[in-house]
């Protein structure tokens, strides 16, 4: 093999970089889904949980447009139930604990939305 030193260094760098997900996590505890604290007094969100997990950010934007741009304050969910379109009075009424609900999952998945540069962070009331 010619230039063996350089080639071996290159091959090692390549192998280490492309196997990094395996050795970076080696020996660590298994990753667990962040356990968010769900609201205690309410069992049902505006839409089913699978939909909310994937689409909540889109729904928030849709609600903003409906309420502030179209002045439409009533949302009819897929189950047929009517909800008042309001961040403060509908969403945050139940999800009032930012640190244990929103933030936990967002930080684990490196999501940093800019909601709270304008809105008031719900600090959690006992």
């Amino acid at each position: 093999m010619y230039n063996a030193k350089a080639v071996i260094v290159g091959a090692v760098i390549f192998a280490v970089l492309f196997s990094s997900p395996f050795w970076l996590n080696f020996g660590k505890d298994d990753y667990k889904r962040p356990d968010v604290v769900l609201p205690k007094n309410e069992k049902e969100c505006v839409e089913p949980v699978e939909y909310m997990r994937a689409e909540h950010m889109a729904l928030l934007n849709q609600w903003r447009d409906q309420a502030l741009r179209n002045e439409k304050r009533v949302y009819v969910s897929s189950t047929g139930k009517e909800w008042t379109i309001s961040l403060q009075n509908t969403c945050l009424k139940c999800h009032n604990d930012y640190a244990n609900f929103c933030e936990k999952c967002h930080i684990a998945n490196s999501v940093y939305p800019y909601c709270w540069t304008c809105h008031i962070t719900p600090e959690g009331k006992k």
Binding site: P21, N25, D30, K32, R33
Partner: peptide, 16 residues
């Protein structure tokens, strides 16, 4: 949209 929290659980399982 996919629920990335579930996907991260799955991918971390692969990495572990």
């Amino acid at each position: 949209k996919a629920d990335i929290a579930s996907i991260k659980v799955f991918i971390m399982g692969l990495a572990h």
